Simulated assay, not measured.
Amino acid sequence: MTAQRQERNGRRRQNAFIALLSGLAMAGIALAAHAATTERLVADRYTGLAIGGFDPVAYFTDAQPLVGQAAFEAAEAGAIWRFRNEGNRAFFLAHPEIYGPQFGGYDPTDVARGVAVAGDPRFWLVAGQRLFLFGGAKSRDAFAADPARFAREARQRWPGLQETLAR
């Protein structure tokens, strides 16, 4: 075998190895995304943080998503919640059903279709004194156009969808 041929074969093996690693990495990302959306409450599977560590009360009090601090944590519904201050922590613990995201943090437009897609805490809306998280701006805007309809349809589908999610 000539030196050029050996070099070409070596490059082919290297390229095949890189392609294999890329495929495995993509499969791992897909599995991680799936694992993050098979719980009744959207929480980071490694840290246990609900809604990415954002303070759920801040959406109401500051009208924006603010990251909570480790000094103000609380365990609720199988997840760790972080808050900006002790007051927000106390409000949440007194009424988690009000301050926690509806449908466990899943996108309500997808829940209305019978699909569990994790919401992103950066795409949010407070409607009817409840917090909703969305997978993206398009979904949030669709919900904002008719929140009563989407919330009603999502509430109807949520019990059945919850049964398909891990406990």
Rank of each mutant, 00 (worst) to 15 (best):
R140Y: 02
A36Y: 06
H34R: 12
R12N: 08
P56E: 11
F143I: 12
N85E: 05
A16F: 12
R40D: 09
F143L: 11
H95M: 07
V57W: 03
A118L: 07
A25F: 13
A79V: 00
F83E: 00
I80E: 08
L93W: 03
D110F: 07
W81Y: 05
A151R: 10
Q69H: 08
G48S: 12
R8D: 06
I98D: 05
D110T: 05
A112T: 02
G78P: 02
L133M: 05
V117N: 14
L31S: 14
A151L: 02
T38C: 09
M1Y: 05
Q162V: 09
T38E: 13
D44Q: 02
L165F: 13
G105Q: 11
Y46C: 06
A148Q: 04
E163T: 10
A63E: 15
G53P: 09
D55T: 01
W81C: 01
R13W: 14
G87N: 13
K138D: 15
A154R: 11
L31D: 14
A148W: 00
G68K: 11
R140M: 12
S22D: 05
R12M: 12
F92T: 00
L133Y: 06
A148D: 05
R149C: 05
F91G: 04
R157F: 04
F150I: 11
V42H: 03
P159N: 00
T61V: 14
R82L: 08
A145Q: 15
A166S: 14
Q162G: 10
P96W: 00
A79T: 03
G100D: 11
R155P: 01
G114L: 03
